[in-house]
Computed example of a mutant assay.
Amino acid sequence: MRHTTIEALSHSYPVHIGGDLRYETGRYFPKSYSSILIITDETVAAHYLPDVKKSLSQETVFSHVIPEGEKAKSIETFYQLHTKAIEYGLDRQSLIIALGGGVVGDVAGFVAATFMRGIDFIQMPTTILAHDSSVGGKVAINHEHGKNLIGSFYAPAAVIYDVQTLHTLPVDEIRSGYAELLKEALLADSDLYQSLITIDLSSLSSQDLSDKLLKGIKIKAGIVEVDERESGIRKHLNLGHTLGHALESLLGYGYRTHGELVALGLLFAFRVSEKTFSLELPYEQLYTWLKRNGYPLNMPYVEPERIISKMKKDKKTLRTTIQMVLLKGVSKPALMEITDDNLLEYLDGFQKELAQRNS
């Protein structure tokens, strides 16, 4: 088993990574609780909810299952969960467990942040992607005009990451989570990037995955600990997300996984970086690896004006000028403002290039 500690502004919290941790969940609690509410989704509930509940058989435990996917990050689900917490009699000494992927973690964490002005919650990620979202303390729900526009900074009491739960992931979710690992490596660890870019996703071992997930978490922790409230370098974590978030909203949540669209965003960031800084990045290496591992690199053509309009609703936009995280090299991020005229040209060219190469 692996351990690390995240130093948040409000408190430090442990991250435990290993196999079969769900069978002894309470062992990793930082303290005792009056009652526990486990929030999970339909798919995860079928696989892992009984194991977690059995491990907490001596506790007062309730559970509630929400729909799967981004549609659950809604004001309706948020309100419903508050109602359930009240009906179950949760108090200020209660705990919420987010058992699932990033969606469950975001909405359950936001409920914990706002129920009785804030109670403890623990992240129990069950996807590779959630290694990124489970640390850093950002919790949110979506608005119809944009992703994660309603939320807060609220750190968990602990992260309990049972990597055995990753073996039931569909292949598109494996691709999704691995894209975030690539992002972290591109930001801060060129050796990790070179290691990641040689792997065949169909043959990942639990040991290898645990090691790489811990490295990714440590990269994010290092950034978050310096800038928890996203006033400076934490914005670098948006690498690949400026385009990725816009496409998620425009194409419909669930059209592709979050990470698959972030992968497209990484490619786009490479192209814009090359044009902005007059340099050459390993674009072809990344493209070839994504293609070989089954990432969907084709998509319907979307008018660049519509993409830019959606980008301007992103939280990173500054005075209506779009900011993008670019790279001056692997592990050399830079936050740059990009003019609308340049973005129109880049988006049109990028989409046409992908269409031509994937026709």
Results as ranks from 00 to 15, higher is better:
83 T>M: 12
263 A>M: 03
36 I>D: 04
87 E>M: 05
331 S>Q: 14
253 Y>I: 00
86 I>T: 14
311 M>D: 06
256 R>F: 09
158 A>N: 05
60 T>E: 11
330 V>W: 01
300 P>L: 10
121 F>L: 02
308 I>A: 02
224 V>C: 13
20 D>S: 11
64 H>E: 07
262 V>G: 02
42 E>G: 05
84 K>D: 05
153 F>Q: 08
180 E>W: 10
177 G>I: 03
73 K>I: 09
102 G>I: 07
158 A>S: 11
137 G>C: 12
297 L>I: 07
14 P>V: 02
236 H>C: 08
256 R>S: 07
299 M>T: 12
179 A>F: 02
276 T>M: 13
344 L>S: 10
130 A>F: 01
256 R>W: 00
129 L>R: 09
187 L>K: 01
172 D>Y: 14
258 H>N: 10
57 S>P: 00
66 I>F: 05
94 S>I: 10
233 I>F: 08
62 F>K: 08
80 Q>M: 09
147 K>L: 04
355 A>P: 05
136 G>Q: 09
148 N>K: 04
214 L>R: 11
239 L>G: 03
278 S>C: 07
214 L>Y: 07
293 N>H: 08
235 K>D: 09
109 G>S: 03
344 L>E: 14
264 L>Y: 02
96 I>P: 06
146 G>H: 09
146 G>K: 12
211 D>P: 00
335 L>I: 15
132 D>F: 02
335 L>E: 08
202 S>R: 15
116 M>E: 14
139 V>D: 12
192 L>G: 03
30 P>T: 14
1 M>K: 07
62 F>H: 15
148 N>T: 04
123 Q>T: 00
203 S>H: 14
243 L>Y: 12
135 V>D: 14
190 S>V: 13
349 G>M: 03
110 F>T: 02
230 E>L: 01
128 I>G: 00
191 D>T: 12
132 D>P: 04
154 Y>A: 07
48 Y>F: 15
95 L>C: 12
191 D>K: 11
140 A>V: 05
176 S>P: 10
36 I>A: 07
227 D>T: 02
163 V>R: 00
345 E>M: 13
23 Y>S: 15
146 G>Q: 12
219 I>P: 10
337 E>N: 12
298 N>Q: 13
297 L>G: 06
8 A>D: 02
67 P>G: 09
252 G>N: 03
290 L>S: 00
17 I>H: 03
115 F>N: 04
199 I>T: 12
13 Y>K: 10
293 N>M: 10
209 L>D: 09
72 A>P: 09
86 I>G: 02
69 G>C: 03
49 L>F: 12
53 K>M: 15
87 E>P: 00
59 E>W: 04
195 S>E: 14
49 L>V: 11
193 Y>T: 06
98 A>H: 06
212 K>L: 15
